[in-house]
Design a protein around this nucleic acid. Structure first.
Length: 275
DNA sequence: CTTGTACCCTGACCGC
DNA sequence: TGCGGTCAGGGTACAA
């Protein structure tokens, strides 16, 4: 379940291995990972021969900035990458390889996706610029202050947890970090976003940024399926306070952590200290 | 405009 | 041992 810290971890793993490389050949074993209208017949020749100038990230999307456009990648739930020296995936866990990209240094980039909810789309630089406008601000950007958080989420009767996860309001936050940030800020996840006080916004801003940074320092949360590149695990799951901790004691007030469902997603919170 | 729901997909897990 | 049902949640399409 890659959110901002997980996708950024993958970007940092991939960038030094891929930047400056040319893609010589592409194989798409599972065409349904090609998002949008393009099938392999249109996709493959547009990628082959292109050079990877940089590996980027916006929200939870990983970006391969090519000389001919932007290869946009969504990992959704189970998408993973590995880079190997030969024609076979370097780790045995890659049993659902959906696409392979041969590089000009003899190595191959493998994309594996059990559920195939993720995938690729090649956009022109102009198309990506327009697409990118749909996202809210990046919460780890240097100029993202409490004022920017308030402008992004403090409107509407939507519960604050859903507001945090709405990618058009705020980029990169998903189910795990929304629950964790609200617990750290002592805010009830069901509260309408428009009702947060200035002090609560300041607490949420600090908590959210600290948790995203700490998770990045831990290479993300390997809870079920997420891995960094080549199967590497993150360790932030060891530092979670409420996510998937239903029935355990809140580390702050010892009340019992509860699980509720908001918009079909699990929310974990402490009824004792989140008000 | 906002808000809610169904759907895509497979593997892990549970109860019988 | 098998087997059906449920759940996981990212984003998107569509309805109200």
């Amino acid at each position: 379940m890659p959110e901002l810290p997980e996708v950024e971890t993958i970007r940092r793993d991939l960038a030094p291995q891929l930047e400056g490389r040319r893609i010589c050949a592409v194989r798409v074993a599972r065409p349904d990972i090609l998002l949008g209208t393009a099938g392999p017949a249109a996709f493959v020749p547009r990628i082959e021969g292109s050079c990877i100038r940089a590996v980027g990230r916006r929200a939870k999307w990983l970006l391969f900035l090519l000389d001919r456009g932007v290869l946009v990648t969504q990992l959704r739930m189970t998408g993973r990458f590995a880079v190997g020296p030969g024609p076979l995936p370097p780790i045995s866990e890659f049993r659902h390889v959906a696409a392979e990209f041969d590089l000009d240094d003899g190595r191959t980039l493998f994309y594996d996706d059990v559920r195939r909810l993720g995938g690729f789309q090649l956009l022109s630089h102009d198309e990506w610029r327009r697409e990118e406008q749909r996202f809210g601000p990046e919460p780890l950007a240097a100029d993202f202050r409490a004022r920017e958080l308030a402008a992004a989420i403090r409107h509407g009767r939507l519960p604050v947890k859903n507001a945090l996860m709405d990618q058009s309001r705020l980029a990169g936050v998903g189910n795990i970090y929304a629950s964790e940030a609200l617990h750290a800020a002592r805010i009830d996840p069901t509260r309408p976003a428009e009702g947060l006080t200035d002090d609560e916004i300041r607490r949420l801003h600090r908590s959210l940024r600290r948790i995203l940074r700490d998770s990045l320092d831990s290479s993300g949360t390997t809870f079920s399926s997420y891995r960094a590149v080549n199967g590497r695990s993150g360790s932030f799951q060891d530092l979670l306070k409420v996510y998937a901790k239903e029935g355990t004691a809140c580390p702050r007030c010892r009340s019992e952590i509860r699980r509720i469902v908001q918009s079909g997603r699990s929310t974990f919170y402490c009824p004792g200290c989140q008000v």
